[in-house]
Design a protein around this nucleic acid. Structure first.
Lengths: 197, 197
DNA sequence: TTATAATTTCAATTTTTTCTGAAAATTTCA
DNA sequence: TGAAATTTTCAGAAAAAATTGAAATTATAA
């Protein structure tokens, strides 16, 4: 499988059958699953960097998300072609985020990993962590900065005015996010309905 | 100014006066403004990397956001201690994002730059760009991947199921974001009120 | 048009981040 | 307890990203 090059962003090959010639035998080979899987993993991987986690971490997560069975570290290393250390470190981080879990199988020494499979729960968990890691500390600093003493100069006035606005907006966002965290599993749909009204 | 070391995360120095001894003269020097300004710029800078723009870009933006007057490239280079090339490149990117603008002063050859000052407008602009750059392309790929043909295997079923869920969620988010973009300037507060109800 | 002020571009360099792999640590089984 | 299986850690290597600075380009005024 890993010797077949799968075009990543080539529209023409989506939902297509591949015709392979191997040692004088010809096969019509349905690549749909592997192609789709690779596309998903690599897309999720590059998206990861956009919301602050690295590629390997996001790819491991993607792999676990679509895997019906828990995977071992070996499985992950082999499928993504990454080192043991890298795998170990990133699995730990995913567990810190609360979106990947360790599992043990009876009679087996090695550890298995699964991801949170409910995407709404996943979103809630991510919202919760981002609030804690990024939003809350920012809010604190904006509050400090916007509380400096007025000295009558225009530049101080502008600094206070702008950081106050940002502070207010950040607090609103945080409240919204925490509302969302406390909602039931269909919050996204419900929130949408409310916004449209 | 740039020779005075300003402690960045030191609670004890916030809102404090500094006592300086320079060449036998003593001053009580109110550092509030500069300290606050530096704290804001460096915080905004490191936050930037978390939502996908680099440090210099975010710092330039921060500087323009709190500057009552438009600034030239020279001003920015000097205040942030970065090179001309860096400044030019990042200003261009900020303009691509639609949150920084060029201004010309009559009789002056050089260009001046300002930032969008209304933070709600800023948020709307950012939401719009992120939808265009990240969310929309992701939605397209999730749609493609979730449309592969069922082949009866469990792994294919799982891949389809999970990518379908993600696709649905991403679409909902995108719709929400675009709703928000079309709202008036107080959308955040209004959205919050709706969610709380 | 020419001189010059201002900006952009980009190859080379520096800095930061990620990744590897082997040694150390931990866990489990007998 | 000891040996084997498994995981973690971390110094150094590799890769990626950001930054510089000087040459090329563009715009302006005389």
């Amino acid at each position: 499988m890993k010797d077949i090059h799968i075009p990543q962003n080539n529209k023409a090959t989506t939902n297509f059958q591949y015709f392979l010639k191997v040692q004088n035998f010809s096969y019509i080979c349905n690549m749909k699953y592997d192609e789709a899987k690779n596309k998903f993993i690599s897309t999720w991987g590059s998206l990861g960097t956009l919301w602050g986690i690295n590629k390997a971490m996001a790819q491991i997560h993607a792999l676990l998300l679509i895997s019906p069975e828990p995977l071992t570290m070996e499985d992950i290393m082999e499928q993504l072609q990454i080192s043991r250390g890298n795998t170990s470190t990133n699995l730990r981080q995913l567990m810190d985020w609360g979106i990947v879990f360790k599992e043990n199988k009876m009679g087996e020494r090695k550890e298995y990993f699964t991801s949170e499979k409910d995407v709404q729960e996943l979103a809630r968990q991510i919202a919760k962590e981002r609030s804690r890691r990024e939003l809350k500390p920012t809010i604190k600093i904006l509050k400090d900065v916007s509380n400096i003493e007025q000295d009558g100069t225009q530049k101080t006035e502008e600094l206070i005015k702008q950081t106050k606005s940002l502070h207010e907006m950040a607090e609103t966002l945080d409240i919204m996010m925490n509302k969302v965290i406390g909602q039931d599993h269909n919050w996204i749909t419900k929130a949408l309905v409310k916004l449209i009204k």
